[in-house]
Each structure stands twice: as structure tokens, then as C-alpha cells.
Amino acid sequence: TTYKLIANGKTLKGETTTEAVDAETAERVFKEYAKKNGVDGEWTYDDATKTFTVTE
């Protein structure tokens, strides 16, 4: 399944996707990606669109 991340960070803005077996796995991947890019904010997830959003 393809999951999408929308990053609304102070230093990183944009979108990326990952293939994962479930939302929990995708969330781990995206949180690691955000951490590597210095983004720390509020996370939301929309199951209907398989989209995570992080906003600083």
C-alpha cells in the first residue's frame, strides 16, 4: 500500500511517499524521515486517503 506524507515544517515543506504493509509501518518510516530532516511537529493521519501530515 502506498502512504503519503505531507510535511509542513519550518525547514522542510513538501510531499513524499512510501510503500508499507500497514499504516503503523508507514508512520515509523515517516517519523524517521522527519527526524532526519529536523521536522518535529503535530502529526495527523487520514485513513481514507492514506495520508500523514506533520505540521510545525
Rank of each mutant, 00 (worst) to 15 (best):
T11K: 08
K10E: 11
K4L: 08
E24H: 11
L12C: 14
K10S: 14
A26N: 00
F30K: 00
D22P: 01
D47K: 09
W43E: 00
T17W: 14
T53W: 10
Y3S: 01
A34S: 05
K13Y: 13
E15A: 08
T17I: 09
G38R: 06
T55R: 06
T16Q: 09
Y3G: 01
L5E: 01
A26V: 02
I6S: 04
T18S: 04
G38Q: 08
T2L: 14
Y3W: 05
E19I: 15
G9Y: 06
E15K: 06
T55Q: 09
K10G: 11
L12P: 04
L5K: 00
D47Q: 10
G41I: 02
T55Y: 09
F30M: 02
F52V: 01
T25V: 09
T17A: 07
G9P: 04
V54F: 13
L5G: 01
T53D: 02
T51L: 04
L5Y: 03
F30Q: 00
D40C: 13
E42Q: 13
T25Q: 14
A20H: 02
T49R: 06
E24C: 13
V54I: 10
V54A: 02
E27I: 08
A23K: 15
N8E: 09
E27R: 09
F52H: 01
A34Y: 04
E56R: 04
V21S: 12
V21F: 12
D47E: 14
K35Y: 11
A34I: 07
G14Q: 11
T51I: 06
Y33T: 04
D22H: 03
T2F: 09
E27K: 09
T2G: 04
I6Q: 06
N8Y: 14
T55E: 07
T49F: 05
A23C: 12
D22Y: 03
T49K: 07
T49I: 06
K13I: 13
T53H: 07
R28V: 08
A7P: 03
T1W: 12
A23F: 14
T2A: 05
D22W: 03
K10A: 12
K13H: 12
N8H: 12
E56G: 05
Y33R: 03
K35E: 11
K4D: 02
A23S: 10
T53A: 05
Y3I: 01
D47P: 13
E56K: 04
T44M: 10
N37A: 10
R28G: 06
W43M: 04
T25L: 05
K31M: 07
T49W: 03
E42P: 04
L5V: 03
Y45R: 02
I6D: 03
T44W: 08
D40K: 11
T11A: 09
K36I: 11
F52P: 00
R28C: 08
T25S: 14
N37E: 07
A26I: 02
V39S: 03
D40S: 12
T17F: 15
N37K: 10
R28T: 08
E24T: 11
K35T: 11
T11Y: 15
T18E: 04
E24P: 10
D46M: 04
G9F: 12
R28K: 13
K4F: 12
A48R: 10
Y33P: 00
A20F: 05
K13N: 12
E42Y: 13
K36D: 10
A26C: 01
T2R: 10
K4V: 11
R28Q: 11
E15T: 13
A23V: 12
A20G: 04
L5D: 01
E19L: 14
E27H: 12
V21C: 12
D40F: 14
T18V: 14
V39M: 12
G9R: 03
G41T: 02
E19K: 13
A34M: 10
A7F: 15
E32I: 08
A34N: 02
T18I: 15
K13A: 10
K4S: 05
E32W: 06
G9D: 04
T49Q: 06
K4M: 07
T25Y: 07
W43Y: 02
K50C: 07
F30L: 04
A48M: 11
T55P: 01
Y45S: 01
V29C: 08
K36M: 13
T2Y: 08
V54T: 02
K31C: 05
T16P: 03
V29I: 15
W43N: 00
A26K: 00
D46R: 03
G9N: 06
D46A: 04
K31Y: 06
E24F: 10
A7N: 05
T44Q: 09
K4Q: 05
T18L: 14
E19F: 15
N8D: 09
K50F: 09
T17V: 09
F30W: 02
A20R: 02
G38H: 08
T49C: 04
T44F: 12
T51G: 02
F30G: 00
T55G: 05
T1E: 11
V54N: 01
T51W: 02
T1V: 11
T11Q: 09
E15M: 09
A23E: 07
E32S: 07
E42K: 12
E56F: 08
K50W: 05
T2W: 11
Y33V: 06
G9A: 13
T55I: 10
T11C: 15
V29A: 08
E42S: 10
T18Q: 05
N37P: 01
T2N: 05
E42H: 13
E15R: 05
G38V: 03
T1L: 10
V54L: 12
E15H: 08
D46W: 03
A26H: 00
L5Q: 01
T18W: 07
K31L: 06
T44E: 11
D47I: 08
E15G: 06
T16C: 12
K36W: 08
T1P: 07
T16I: 15
I6H: 05
T25R: 06
T55D: 07
E42N: 11
D40I: 14
D46H: 06
R28L: 10
L5H: 01
V29K: 08
D46E: 07
E56L: 07
T17S: 10
G38M: 06
E15W: 12
F30R: 00
G38C: 06
K10V: 14
T55K: 07
A20T: 05
T53F: 10
T51A: 04
F30N: 00
V39G: 03
V54D: 01
T17H: 11
T55W: 11
T11H: 14
K35H: 11
Y3R: 00
A20P: 02
K31H: 08
W43H: 00
N37I: 09
N37Q: 11
E27S: 08
Y33S: 02
T2I: 14
I6L: 08
G38T: 04
D46N: 10
T1N: 14
K4G: 03
A7E: 04
T49E: 06
A7H: 13
E19D: 11
A7R: 04
T44G: 06
W43A: 00
D46S: 06
V29Q: 08
G41M: 03
T25I: 08
T25H: 14
T16E: 06
K35S: 11
Y33W: 15
T11R: 04
E24Y: 10
E32P: 01
Y3L: 01
E27W: 14
F52K: 00
D22G: 04
A20C: 10
T17P: 02
L12M: 11
N37V: 11
E56V: 10
L12H: 14
W43D: 00
T18H: 07
G9I: 10
E42F: 14
A48C: 10
G38E: 06
I6V: 11
N37G: 04
K13P: 09
A26R: 00
A20N: 03
T2M: 11
A48K: 14
W43V: 02
T17E: 09
G41V: 03
E32F: 05
K50H: 12
V39W: 15
V21A: 14
Y33K: 03
F30Y: 02
E24W: 09
T18M: 13
A26S: 02
K31N: 04
K36A: 14
E32M: 07
V54C: 07
F52G: 00
G41C: 03
K36C: 09
T11P: 05
D46C: 07
T1Q: 13
